[in-house]
């Protein structure tokens, strides 16, 4: 065999086998994917799903093996801020499965709710079921489909959801067609009047400004939710007027007890929500014609 051809491959193999050892991280499973292979690792009592081990920080989702109910990631906890706006969701749509944490917690909190989950990668669904305890039921279904396609069809059918989580953006490649004004208009069209859109977006990078003006163009004023030490920003948007902060505070007191077991202190959330624009409002809106998100990140 020609070593010149094989040496890069060998390097990669050496790196793959060396990386977990140096990080004390154990790869317990690798699932082949049409997109990027999905790795499951265990480290320090946590089990994580990753798309790229070499980048180190590419944990898609983690669970605490000693206390599986405890939410590990800040942004996952932050996404439940949507309950402050709609504390009684009946039809829930989650775009982006990950380990299935958000839909599973929603199922525990709201046993009667109908839940649709959208995940483009079958491998992620397989791994979530096998390693993260993800379970569907008769009113909870995961659809292996591009979120844009599903939401467009839901709009044509006239389906409505009162709690929509957009969380398809983690990882290295950003699906640019899920950031545009046209997409958000399609999301808005399937949102009930009292519903809420919870979008997990980028807190740093140029994209912050672009996403902010695009959400503003479609939904008008929205609640912006950032926490120190988290690279994520949660947008809470509605179809009409935003509820007053005072209402959110009283709801957070009602929700505190049910969310505490998940290591969430929702009382901390309302003071961090703001409608103030801390972005450059002259930024260009992202559209289907113009969405260079991966170049802006």
């Amino acid at each position: 065999m020609n070593f010149r051809i094989w040496s890069p491959l060998l390097c990669v193999l050496v790196l793959i086998s060396a990386a977990p050892a140096s990080a004390q991280r154990q790869v317990i499973h690798e699932e082949r994917s049409q997109y990027r292979n999905v790795l499951v690792t265990e480290f320090n009592g946590q089990r994580c799903m990753l798309f790229n081990i070499h980048r180190g920080d590419m944990n898609q989702t983690c669970i605490d093996l000693r206390n599986p109910r405890r939410l590990v990631f800040n942004y996952t906890k932050m996404s439940f801020a949507g309950l402050l706006i709609n504390p009684e969701p009946e039809r829930i749509l989650v775009a982006g499965l990950g380990g299935g944490t958000i839909p599973m917690v929603m199922r525990e909190l709201y046993p009667e709710a109908e839940i649709d989950v959208l995940e483009v990668d079958q491998a992620v669904v397989n791994v979530a079921r096998e390693f993260f305890g993800y379970r569907e039921d008769e009113k909870h279904e995961v659809h292996v489909v591009d979120a844009r396609v599903f939401i467009k069809r839901a709009g044509l059918r006239g389906d409505k959801y009162d709690y929509i989580v957009l969380d398809a953006f983690s990882g290295e490649y950003i699906p640019e067609h899920l950031l545009t004004r046209e997409f958000l208009e399609e999301v808005k069209a399937i949102l009930t009047d009292d519903g809420v859109v919870v979008a997990n977006t980028f807190a740093s990078s140029d994209l912050y400004d672009y996403e902010s003006v695009t959400y503003q163009a479609v939904f008008g004023e929205f609640y912006n939710f950032k926490r120190v030490g988290s690279g994520n920003r949660i947008i809470l948007a509605t179809n009409g007027e935003l509820p007053e902060l005072g209402d959110l505070r009283s709801r957070s007191r009602d929700l505190y007890d049910v969310l505490a077991p998940y290591d969430m202190n929702i009382l901390e959330f309302p003071p961090l929500l703001t409608t103030e624009a801390d972005w450059d409002e002259s930024t260009r809106i992202l559209t289907d014609q113009y969405s260079p998100a991966n170049l802006l990140n």
């Binding site: 049409q34 997109y35 483009v120 489909v145 591009d146 979120a147 844009r148 396609v149 467009k152 699906p175 640019e176 067609h177 545009t180 046209e182 997409f183 289907d288 969405s291």
Partner: peptide
């Protein structure tokens, strides 16, 4: 890819 994405996604 960008022309088709709004209707058919950007799946592989």
């Amino acid at each position: 890819g960008r022309v088709l994405a709004p209707y058919f996604g950007s799946s592989v």
